[in-house]
Design a protein around this nucleic acid. Structure first.
Lengths: 256, 256
DNA sequence: AGAGGCTCCCAACATACGTTAAGCTCGAGT
DNA sequence: ACTCGAGCTTAACGTATGTTGGGAGCCTCT
């Protein structure tokens, strides 16, 4: 499969971390060769992170943005009585806090939900690139708009579907987003995220999360391990999750 | 009160519909006098709408944006089995579909949830203003980022709080947003939205919506009629809704 | 003023999901 | 190979909320 060799390419360092960002932007907006060169020249300060240590904390005023290079991060907020809602999950190529470019104060926390590596880019560098190549500025704006579109879809998911459907829906979403950056391996993908974290993303308890995974497995839709998710029946899963990929605004929507 | 006379000013047509948009942008971003003039010159095609008729439908590709002038509109999505999730409520001054500027296909529906009047502005006119005054482009980008911040907060609300807290939270939010455009009347505001609509915004049934309103009234936090909401105890309401206005990113956050 | 239609309210009952608590499994480290 | 802890699973029981259905209040139109 082309996808799994892409993973290997990344491992062997023959594609640079910036290429994931480029791939992501290409998946939602046309990017010229000159713009690609500009993106490739962006300085990335690489860091390895483990769950439990925030990347940016609520209330901070960051002066840089973060690009996910490997692993998964999430956006979350807490209620005063200890509840945690995860409201976004990021895959490699995403810029989780791109909004900090124009919204000074962070109104959410950003944290790894698997061990992961990220790259930091100073705001001013991004600003410079946008000034020189206005179409890249539009691409980044578009990126933030798609983030919002995903928020909307999650709200539909959490507000109107039962837990079973919510999980099916998210798995479909992750499958498509990972495929867009070439990180699926056939009909499965690496996803070392605990059920407790997922529960917080669905607004359910971790006990119920376990129940639902069990039901999905029993019905032959999914096969889940601690590190991977395998889709056994894409059509049924899409049906169960009432999934329509329009909201991802990908240039070309191919099923897995 | 200054607020209620503002309402009268609007009635008597001594402020133009564009002024609400200007007021909204000023509440989140500095706007120069020259920029104000440019905004005032934007052509607005006015329309009166009733609930039940969509403003823009899912899947369409609008060539104009809509500004709310009076009343309330909402963004919604449907599940295949008939559920409806309202994921945003707009107050006068808001541009509900500003995202259509850079995201061709609508991935949600936009509809009035009270009788209301809106104004339409062609995309190209907005584009021109942004090209001439880049800071206005940034202000609009910022506007879309704040929309996203509100989505995030709603997700926390729906995913982690019980219905009682959800309702308290939203009332706090509406109070502050309406105050920012001068549309509160002391500690109350006009809000002719049915409980069935609100139920769809909270992800609960309309029966439960009624229960919760009853509880809020019984505890002396709120007084609700078909057309108005009056906050009886702002501090308690804020407490009950676990409300922190940071996410609204208003320039100055004054309590009601 | 009466009829019809929304909207809201209330009561009885059903259920998806939360909570608690107890084992179990797996992988990391010695 | 053994230990230990984090994560997962299962069961029993409690509750917030859904559903159904009936009735009361309140507009609007005739």
């Amino acid at each position: 499969m082309a996808q799994s060799s892409d993973v290997n390419l990344l491992m062997t360092r023959s594609i640079s971390p910036n290429d994931l960002l480029i791939r992501r932007l290409q998946s939602i907006h046309p990017v010229s060769n000159e713009e690609i060169r500009a993106l490739r020249d962006l300085p990335l300060e690489i860091a390895s992170l483990e769950p439990g240590h925030d990347i940016v904390r609520m209330g901070e005023r960051p002066t840089q943005c973060c690009v996910v290079i490997e692993g998964f991060t999430c956006i979350y907020k807490l209620t005063s009585d200890g509840g945690r809602q995860i409201m976004a999950i990021h895959v490699p190529g995403d810029i989780p806090d791109i909004q900090s470019l124009h919204l000074g104060v962070m109104d959410f926390g950003l944290a790894p939900i698997s061990s992961c590596t990220v790259g930091y880019i100073p705001h001013e560098k991004i600003q410079q690139v946008c000034d020189t190549y206005p179409r890249l500025g539009v691409a980044l704006w578009r990126e933030t708009l798609i983030d919002a579109a995903i928020y909307r879809d999650w709200m539909l998911n959490i507000g109107q579907r039962e837990a079973f459907g919510r999980v099916a829906h998210l798995v479909c979403e992750l499958m498509m987003r990972l495929k867009a950056v070439g990180l699926t391996e056939g009909s499965s993908f690496k996803f070392p995220v605990t059920q407790a974290n997922l529960a917080d993303a669905f607004g359910i308890s971790s006990v119920h999360m376990s129940r639902v995974y069990g039901m999905l497995a029993k019905q032959g839709l999914l096969l889940v391990t601690r590190t991977h998710i395998t889709v056994l029946d894409w059509d049924e899963l899409q049906e169960a999750g009432d999934f329509d990929p329009t909201y991802l605004h990908l240039e070309r929507n191919a099923p897995a």
